[in-house]
Computed example of a mutant assay.
Amino acid sequence: MKKSLLIICMMLGMATAFAQNKAVNKAEQLLKQNKLSEAKEQIDAAVNDEKTKDKAKTWYTRGQIYAAIATSEDASVKAISENAIAEAAQSFRKAQELEPNPTSPFNALSDQALNGLWGVYINNGAKAYEAQNYEVAVVEFDKALQVIPTDTTASLYAGVAAQQLGDRDRSAKYFYNLLDAGYADKDIFYTLIAYERDQKQDYAKAREVIKRGKEAFPDEVEFRKQEVALLLKEDKTSEAVNELKQAISAEPKNPDLHFNLGYLNEELGDQAAAIAAYKKALEVDPTHKNSAFNLAVIHYNRAADLVKEANNLGLSKEEAKKGAEMRKRATEYFKEAVPYVENALRLHPDNRTLMEITMVTYDRAGEKAKADALSKQLDSME
């Protein structure tokens, strides 16, 4: 008797489970028959039913149905759901939440389905981009982002495609997605800085992007240069100088801060202060490349500009005399420049511009042998 009761109970349990899964199973069958409207009705009912709403299979099946709607080429099918992509992605993720173990069946299947759906739109976007149909490319890459919102590939390609359209607002949206996802690329930062500064004229936002760029690339001097340039653009010269001086007081052994002060003074036209700051940076760090480079350029330009000025003088006796005096002074400047260009070249041995500057400096300073040696080295590089 007890055995009979046990069998009856087991059968009742199986019947109940079957009844619970009936809508899900029916939705699966309708999906196989490509009857997506009916399948959607069945599965939407199942995810709202107390008996089936917490089943991973229910949500995985819903994801499949909505994915089929989203990827259908039939406009009448697409009209069944305006948000089919988002609904499919949300359903697959819900299935994974209900089966959190990555090796469990519906977690693994949902992961495959998400990547497969993402791949469809990435491929569509790539084909459109290759065909120079950039508007379609943006739309398709955006669909991929609806599947995996943190995907950096889709954000990058969508942003670049939007750039091709000249749509800087849309490209900025996708590039900000990249930053928020932890994607660190200097060009993306530079693009967003220019966007906020030049197009939006939102200098506070531009400084915010610069700050993020400095955090991502602490050794990248260009961000500091852009920060100084932005402050100058806002006519906040004293603020820029004060901020740098305060920072130097707090970190006197930071060569980058001294370099920034030098660069700012250059922008302000105070060459003597710039030279002093660059020299201080090199005192702190003798291998500070950017300070060495700028010092070399300042000293070279001082001499070269004087020669150019002399060459532009007229042919009168008085002007000829003045020109000769200027060239003589320029020669002294070139001699003074020698140790600076040599030091910069030592730190930038493969920099062709520096090699050419150094060669001219040697020649003008009367060190012909060194100039000839550098000339031969440059010829061999060609």
Rank of each mutant, 00 (worst) to 15 (best):
K200Y: 07
A128V: 02
L378T: 09
M326Y: 07
E239Q: 13
Y176H: 03
A229W: 00
D270T: 11
A304K: 12
I148D: 02
M1V: 09
K211R: 15
A39R: 01
S37P: 03
V341R: 04
P255V: 09
L230H: 05
D169Y: 05
Q132I: 00
D167G: 08
L178C: 08
L295E: 09
A250M: 04
S316Y: 05
A296L: 09
T103C: 00
Y333R: 08
Y300C: 07
T61C: 01
Y333N: 02
L5H: 04
A162D: 07
Q271M: 14
K200M: 15
S4C: 05
L98V: 05
A344Y: 06
A144W: 06
A194S: 15
K328C: 02
D219E: 13
P149R: 09
A67S: 15
N311S: 09
A320R: 14
Q96S: 09
K335M: 08
L374C: 05
Q64K: 13
K205F: 03
G13T: 14
Y66I: 03
N133T: 09
T103P: 00
D185Q: 11
D219G: 01
P252E: 08
A113K: 08
I275L: 03
A181W: 06
A131F: 06
V241S: 00
S72V: 07
K2W: 02
K317T: 15
Y263V: 06
K94R: 15
N311L: 04
N294F: 11
M11A: 13
T71S: 14
L354A: 09
A88D: 00
T353G: 10
S155V: 03
A240N: 00
L98Y: 12
E87L: 10
N48C: 05
I85Y: 08
K279A: 01
M1Y: 08
A204K: 14
M355F: 02
F189R: 02
A70N: 04
S110A: 13
E41N: 12
K200T: 06
C9H: 03
T152I: 11
G63S: 12
K51V: 01
D256I: 12
L12E: 03
F223V: 01
A277W: 02
Q226K: 13
